[in-house]
């Protein structure tokens, strides 16, 4: 304990991608220790998909027609459900304070968290969706398109949702408010995704939707972390 303080502030700070990797790794580890947080939205997704045929009837053509839309709405709601918890525990146990006073750029830390969120909510949805799609009589070629749209779309959903989660963290009525803020923002993603799948189902050209979803994902990847970081600074004041 006799060493002197040699540090000049930033010399040995790990690089900014280290911050991204560290938060991702930590959140994945946390998800691993609490698998319920990952599984609940998946069950919710499956249940919404089950409710729909029960409500409108099980006829084959109806299911085929409405399948893409139902799956997409269910995926959207399931993501929304999981977004709630994105920053709450960090806010409550003081980790957010540590992020704010860390030398790492906050948008990178936020991006790391969002990436972990996508890996634990969006990606599992992508892999569960084929099972449900098949019950909706979706042909296998269309299932592939659907998985692609879901994969691209949930990236944007996680990123946009992180802005809403950051704005509502620490508020009493945060949960209901989060849906109110995020659903209008998420609407274009759902329009693009669900319709690309519908087009694929009717053998039309669906690439426009995929490209638009990809562009949306890239745009939100580059902009959303800054908005989220700003929102977190404000919410944690």
């Amino acid at each position: 304990m006799n060493q002197t303080i040699s540090n000049e502030g930033q010399r040995d700070i790990p690089g900014m991608f280290a911050g991204l990797a560290a938060t991702t790794k930590r959140d994945l580890l946390l998800a691993w220790k609490r698998p319920g947080d990952v599984l609940n939205p998946l069950f919710f997704f499956a249940m919404v998909c089950t409710l729909f045929p029960l409500a409108v009837g099980p006829s084959a053509e109806q299911l085929e027609f409405s399948g893409p839309g139902v799956l997409w709405v269910a995926a959207l709601l399931a993501t929304l459900l999981s977004l709630n918890a994105l920053f709450i525990s960090d806010f409550e146990d003081g980790s957010l304070d540590q992020f704010l006073v860390s030398p790492q750029p906050l948008p990178m830390l936020v991006l790391g968290k969002t990436l972990a969120h996508w890996l634990t909510s969006g990606l599992p949805l992508v892999f569960v969706s084929p099972i449900l799609a098949i019950t909706y009589r979706m042909p296998l070629s269309v299932v592939g398109v659907m998985m692609l749209t879901l994969a691209l779309g949930t990236i944007s959903l996680s990123l946009l949702g992180s802005i809403g989660a950051a704005l509502t963290v620490g508020l009493h009525r945060g949960t209901a408010l989060l849906s109110l803020l995020i659903l209008p923002l998420a609407m274009p993603i759902m329009i693009l995704g669900a319709n690309a799948v519908s087009l694929a189902a009717t053998n039309d050209i669906y690439s426009t939707g995929i490209w638009a979803l990809g562009a949306y994902a890239i745009a939100s990847l580059s902009l959303a972390p800054y908005a989220t970081a700003a929102a977190l600074r404000i919410s944690n004041e």
Partner: peptide, 30 residues
């Protein structure tokens, strides 16, 4: 705090209005 948070939301929303318009335009053309 309310001022700042809602300003962030309004800015995010303004981008969204444009995107909604174009995505619905694409959708309705289908």
């Amino acid at each position: 705090k309310a001022d700042k948070a809602s300003a962030v939301l309004a800015l995010v929303g303004i981008v969204n209005v444009v995107i909604v318009h174009f995505s619905v335009e694409w959708w309705s053309s289908l």
